[in-house]
Design a protein around this nucleic acid. Structure first.
Length: 883
RNA sequence: GCCCCUGUGGCGGAAUUGGUAGACGCGCCUGACUCAAAAUCAGGUACCGCAAGGUGUGCUGGUUCGAGUCCGGCCAGGGGCACCA
């Protein structure tokens, strides 16, 4: 079968789609006014990176958003449905390096190409609000916000250990390192020390965590992932005195006299066997200065890889400093003090006390160094006298043992007791312990050593230090004349760009040459869409506050942490700096599944593109061959569409062959939207066949002559059609509102089948009431599938003789009385097994139903003359006879 | 290792949230139309069985008049986090 549309009675998708897209555009029906008085609805799909071509994932994403937008418009909302471009980033620079084309040129050419593709999908977007993050008219506001955030204390500059991507030659945030590799390049990440501009997202750790509970229209999964990422743990900071006799005498200045550690298990303090600090802990650095062996050990730790494999296989290693720490509850109890490779400097205080019996890492450590262990928590039903730990630490519940005044307490009681006592105890006028909450969430380092990003509006002056660019000098524009012939940052080696006068002292100074992480760009674009025409400020708060938050945000699960967490932080920062009035940017979030496809390989094992493969046979006898040569092709597993496995299908090809409506319909059918959808040729053809069927069906309805006025009463035939129509209307409305598009599709099929049957049963001249009902059903059907297949819907709407556009039509009104049946068929079970059914009046009483049930032959047979023990009647549902 | 999700025909998936398991689509089978093919239309399609009937939602136990749905224990697949004290 081909998508040949030359047959005269067939719907010509290509011609119709171009025609209606032009008509919508000319009338500007998708442009949204900010002063629209109707209830607002903001639906947004994650904006694309302008890679050059849209892919099927985009088609799925934007189709879902468009269905929601069109539905809400029909429901009478003022709908904001904008589109833009996440246009800064590495690929543009790679193109510059590989193809000698300027990143700007490459990016804008891609935007133009992709915009055309998106327009061919018939999306109801307000293109007047289009923004590109690489445009100075966008990023100048971002620079202003950087200055505002700095003034508000949300930004800091620090020399810190960073994740360095050796392929992209730039820094990555923690969130951008996946399994020890760069999220984009896939290269093993190295550690480097660099000056970084940092957004203090961790100031909001508690708030970002707590507010997750209020996001009741977000997937549970995403909230959980963010919760784990923020990683809150409650514990205590405890100060240990150091045994002065063991702290070397020859320290410069005052010797350290104490060590502060963080613990979540203060209850296990009597099981302590050692202290340990991170290799890069200041105390370790100080101690290494006078101990070459320790210095060598620390050096060794640094060279241990930071990759996942290295961490998994690395042995616990420690170096005994010779220092002894004093137990906070017993001044005669001295604990050995190690520098250990498994302690992280950037969590807690970079120091711990080790309780080997109840922590696996600590146990591995003592077993290696022969320090022993003392269990202090005894599991329930275990005799404390015989409870020993050998090589598996016990981290479960139980009662305290071997712990002096804690013995017999639960863990919770012991924690409270220990912290309570240590809070009251003092060392040098300060309490020994204080309660503290720690987070796994790190601050967000945004400096990137790249050209194609938003310049950080900062000037470095030898005299004045770090000086912000005055707001009046914004934007700091990227220079166009840059070279990509060498690795590294083109801004840094630009001959003149970085040389400026210091805004403070007028002396010679240098621009910051780092640019911002592109995730900054995407952390506020949703707010910019509310008033992209404002040239003086990022937002017009009054307008932004009317549209925001986004009512329905749709995008991939891969952004569950990165983009969504950054945006939540950014919105709070914008609130603090007066750019917006709310904390949360996205009231509703939907994460769609991927588009997957079969993979194909030739005899040599090379991947082959679906476009070059011909599938033969159906079902089990399916086989594949190379279209050009007939060489047999092996059909492989179904996987995410990717360039590397060449299992991609180009949306352009599909739209060319079948039209956008077919592609849209297929994207919504079958698979629930949150799950992966398998793209298959059979599936597309099924969609295309159905599209043609709808066209024929509406053609038949259009041929029915009906009275203009609604008949006073309806006969049985008419009622059947009307019930089917209004039931479909109720179902589809409910399903779109809940984003259950696969069920919408099924209900539209059902309705089309019912209407088809009704037309088939009609006489050549159907009675006026039936004819009226058929026309009504046709009108409803077209409006129901309009959000999914808007072009076909316009064509059908016109064929039905309406002079309006279906895109501006209101959603049909449900007549609820048509959903209520007068009689009802109840299944009848005997002992939970279905044996028959009874049809009774809808309002039949229990005794009436029981009598009908007991009169059934199947029931009589099953009861075998005996009377039932019990008859359970569930109104409107089922009857169960217990024999 | 820790946390989470999923498991239903040949396939994608429905199931009013404890009430007729398999809606709808794909695929397949039969028939009509056709010289033929495509398209279209009509009918069938969970499994075993000629039938009566029986079995059936990963496995296993339980709660219930009634379990795909709830509870316990396994198994399998997928995802997130991971030397975070």
């Amino acid at each position: 079968m081909t998508a040949d549309s030359s047959k005269n009675e067939r719907y010509n998708a290509r011609a119709a789609e171009t025609k209606w897209q032009k008509a919508w555009d000319e009338r500007g029906i998708y442009a949204t006014k900010n002063d629209d008085p109707r209830p607002k609805y903001y639906v947004l799909e994650m904006f694309p990176y302008p890679s050059g071509r849209i892919h099927m994932g985009h088609v799925r994403n934007y189709t879902m958003g468009d269905v929601v937008a069109r539905f809400k418009r029909a429901m009478g909302n003022a709908v904001l449905h904008p589109m833009g471009w996440d246009a800064f980033g590495m690929p543009a620079e790679n193109a510059a390096i590989d193809r000698k084309v300027h990143p700007k040129e490459w990016t804008y050419a891609n935007i133009a190409a992709m915009k055309k593709q998106l327009q061919s999908m018939g999306l109801s977007l307000d293109w007047a609000r289009e923004v590109a993050t690489c445009d100075p008219s966008y990023y100048k506001h971002q620079q202003k916000m950087f200055l505002d955030f700095t003034a508000a204390g949300l930004v800091k500059r620090e020399y810190r250990k960073v994740n360095w991507d050796p392929v992209d030659n730039t820094v990555l945030a923690n969130e951008q390192v996946i399994d020890g590799r760069g999220w984009r390049s896939g290269a093993l990440v190295e550690q480097r020390d660099l000056y970084q501009w940092v957004f203090k997202i961790s100031d909001y750790a508690e708030e970002l965590l707590e507010a997750l509970d209020t996001l009741d229209r977000w997937p549970e999964k995403v909230r959980l992932m963010q919760k784990n990422w923020i990683g809150r743990s409650e514990g205590a900071l405890v100060r240990f005195m150091l045994d002065a006799a063991t702290v070397p005498q020859n320290l410069e200045g005052q010797a350290e006299t104490e060590l502060e550690i963080f613990t979540t298990r203060p209850d296990t303090l009597f099981g302590a066997k050692f202290m340990a600090i991170a290799p890069d802990h200041p105390l370790a650095t100080a101690a290494a200065a006078r101990d070459p062996k320790l210095a060598a050990f620390i050096e060794e730790c640094k060279h241990l890889g930071t990759s996942q494999e290295a961490i998994d296989t690395a042995e616990k290693m420690g170096f005994d400093t010779g220092i002894r720490a004093i137990h906070p509850f017993d001044s005669s109890w001295k604990l050995p003090f190690y520098v250990a490779n498994f302690i992280l400097m950037d969590y807690g205080t970079g120091a711990i006390f080790g309780c080997p019996a109840h922590d696996q890492r600590d146990l591995d450590f003592v077993n290696k160094y022969g320090l022993g262990n003392t269990p202090v928590v005894c599991p329930p039903n275990q005799d404390p006298k015989t409870f020993v730990i050998t090589d598996t630490a016990y981290d479960g519940d139980g009662r305290m043992i071997n712990s002096r005044f804690l013995d017999g307490m639960t863990i919770a009681e012991a924690k409270e007791e220990v912290v309570g006592r240590l809070e009251k105890a003092t060392l040098g006028n300060r309490p020994v312990a204080q309660r503290q909450v720690n987070y796994r969430l790190r601050d967000w380092g945004i400096s990137r050593q790249r050209y194609w990003g938003c310049p950080i509006p900062i000037i470095h002056c030898d005299k004045c230090g770090v000086v912000p660019v005055p707001a009046s000098d914004l934007p700091v524009k990227l220079p166009d004349d840059v070279t990509f012939d060498r690795p590294g940052n083109p801004l840094d080696r630009h001959p003149t760009w970085k040389n400026v006068k210091c805004p403070a002292c007028d002396g010679p100074a240098r621009r910051e040459t780092d640019t911002m992480d592109t995730f900054v760009d995407s952390s506020w674009y949703f707010a910019r869409f509310t008033d992209p025409w404002n040239e003086t400020a990022p937002t017009t708060p009054k307008i932004a506050n009317e549209w925001m938050p986004v009512d329905q945000y749709i995008g991939g699960i891969e952004h569950a942490i990165l983009h969504l967490l950054y945006s939540r932080f950014f919105t709070r920062a914008m609130k603090k700096t007066g750019h917006i009035g709310m904390d949360e940017p996205f009231a509703g979030l939907f994460t769609q599944g991927m588009v997957v496809h079969e993979t194909y390989r030739d005899k040599a094992g090379n991947w082959v593109e679906p476009a070059n493969v011909t599938i033969e046979g159906m079902g089990e006898s399916r086989s594949a061959k190379l279209t050009a040569t007939g060489e047999p092709i092996e059909i492989g597993s179904i996987e995410k569409m990717s360039k590397s496995k060449k299992n991609t299908v180009d949306p352009d090809d599909i739209i060319e062959a079948y039209g956008a409506d077919t592609a849209r319909w297929f994207m919504l059918s079958d698979s629930p939207p949150e799950r992966d959808v398998i793209w298959s040729e059979e599936g597309v053809q099924a969609s295309w066949r159905f599209l043609q069927r709808l066209w024929r069906l509406i053609g038949e309805v259009a041929g029915v002559t009906a009275p203009a006025d609604r008949p006073a009463s309806f006969g049985a035939q008419a009622l059947t059609v009307r019930k089917a129509a209004h039931r479909a209307l109720a179902n589809v409305s409910d399903d779109i509102a809940k984003l259950r598009f696969n069920r919408c599709v099924a209900h539209i099929y059902e309705f089309a089948n019912a209407l088809s049957d009704a037309i088939g049963s009609a006489e050549t001249a159907p009675s006026p009431d039936f004819a009226w009902a058929l026309r009504e059903a046709g009108d409803i059907l077209v409006r129901l599938f309009h959000p999914m297949m808007p072009h076909l819907a316009e064509e059908c709407w016109a064929a039905l003789g309406h002079g309006t556009m279906v895109a501006t039509e209101a959603w049909p009104q449900i007549e609820p009385e048509l959903l209520i049946e007068t009689t009802i068929t109840l299944p009848v079970q005997v002992n939970g097994k279905k044996r028959g059914e009874v049809t009774v009046a809808r309002d039949a009483g229990e005794t009436e139903i029981k009598a009908a049930v007991l009169a059934l032959d199947e029931v009589k047979k099953a009861l075998d003359g005996k009377s039932p023990k019990k008859v359970i009647v569930v109104p409107q549902r089922i009857v169960n006879v217990v024999a």
